[in-house]
Amino acid sequence: MAEVLLDIAERLEALRPRLLAFARLQLVDESLAEDRVQDALLAAYEARENFSGGSKFETWVFAILKNKIIDEIRRRQRELTTQFDADQVVEVDAMFDERAHWVSGKQPEHWVQPESSYLNEQFWLVFDVCVFHLPEGTARVFTMRELLGVETKEICDSLGLSQQNVWVMLHRARLKIRGCLERGWFGREALPK
């Protein structure tokens, strides 16, 4: 029994970077994100007997964290939404300097374990949050193009946008999502130990 408990504690601890990266995407304040992750880890540990084994362990822990984050957002709705834009999303303009080269610290980092991620439910959770961070029109164009596989010509026609417009939106969406996924999943900080 002691071994099983230790095992659960270790698995939870290994998951911490992932959970933290996810919480950070949604809670502006670093210490808030850490606190909610801590709550979720504790709650998961205490409720370990409720884990049916039916869903995957990681999915179950993420579901606990999601609830903690939702509670937090409800509690602080106003503060969070006002701070949200400025702090969370790196604007494309801020990624490049005046010579249109990458700004140090905003350039693409090496991604660890990239290709098999789509198999993982948690990856898509992070992905959805990243899309959610895009401006509404941009998110719409990106979703039509990449998730529904609609050709740009057809997007132009159905949304009444110029070709140029759609390319600009897709370009911005891809750069932003790239940065967001790096922060929330692929980057060194988000990697499970």
Partner: peptide, 13 residues
């Protein structure tokens, strides 16, 4: 990374 993003989206749909 953009290409990877493109591929995984396709797989998801």
């Amino acid at each position: 990374q953009m290409e990877l993003l493109h591929r995984v989206c396709r797989k998801r749909s």
